[in-house]
Design a protein around this nucleic acid. Sequence first.
DNA 1: TGTAACGTTCTT
DNA 2: AAGAACGTTACA
Length: 292
Amino acid sequence: MSSGRSEGSRERIAEAPERNSCREDVPVVERRNRSGIISEPLSKSLKRSRTLSQYTAACPPAGANGHTHHGSGEAKSHTAKPPPPPQPQPTVSALAAAKLDRTLEQVLEGQNGLLHFAQAAALLKRAGMEHMLLPAGMGMGMGGSDSGSGASDLEGASAVDSIGGVADFPYGVGGGFPFNPGLFIMTPAGVFLADSALHMAGLAEYPVQSELASAINSGKKKRKRCGMCPPCRRRINCETCSSCRNRKTGHQICKFRKCEELKKKPSAALEVRYVCGGTYVWFYDCCVCVCV
DNA sequence: TGTAACGTTCTT
DNA sequence: AAGAACGTTACA
C-alpha cells in the first residue's frame, strides 16, 4: 500500500549538497523527517553540542537565571517543573541548596540523567564544592600540558571538539582540567560527572547515579553512534544495500551509515589507557577514568 | 505511539 | 562468517 519506502510519508526528498558515494547514478537526495530535517538521527547531545561559553553565559554567579540551562530539554524542564513552594524565611544556604536542587533536576532531565560536565562545573562551583577541584598544578587530562603525551591522542579528544575545543574550556589554567579526572566521564557528546563525583557532592540520590551505574556495569546499554566517523557523518541512505532494502524486517541502518564503532564488538571497545597517571577505561565510546 | 536502529539469534 | 529476522530500546 504505502509505497515501497517505509519512510514514505515521513521523509521528503530534497536536493542534497552531499555526494552520494553509495550510488553515483542516483540523484543526490536528502531524506528529511517531518520537521524538514535531514533524517540523520544523531544523538541529541551531539545535535545540540555547544561551546562552553554558552554554559558560562547561562550560569551567572548570581544564579539569577543560571539554572535555566539551555541545551537539551530546556523547554521541557521549564514547563515540567513548577515553581518551588514558598518557604518561611529560608536561610541563604537553604536558598542556595534549593536552587541547586532545582537546577540539577532540570539539568539532569535535559541530559537524560547525565550531568554535563560544564554544567556540573558551574553548579559545583556555585555550591562551594571546592573539594571537587584538584590542587593547583594537577590540572591535567584532556587539555593539559600532557596533551602531546597521549591525552590528545585519545578518542576522547573528540569530546573536547564536541563542546568547542580546549581553547573554549575556561576551567583550569592553560586549558588544564581542574577536576579530578576520576570524577568525569568523557564521551563524544561531552564530558559528564561520574558517579563518585556525585557522591562527593552529595548528589548521589539523583538519577545520574543509577544511569551511569547501569550503563557501565550492565554492558547492556544500547550503544549510540559516535557521530563522527564517515558513516555516521553520512546522511543519506543508499536505499540499495540489504539493510535499506530490508528495513522493515531488518531494523538496521544503511550499511553505508553504520557507525564504525558500532561495528566493533563491545568487548573490543574496552581498552585501558594511562594518561597523566590516571587510568582510563574505554567503555564503548566513553572514556571512564577509574583512578579514584 | 510510531519510527529508527542496536543487539541477539537464526539461517544460509 | 555473513546476512536476515526479530526483539528490544531510545527518542520524538
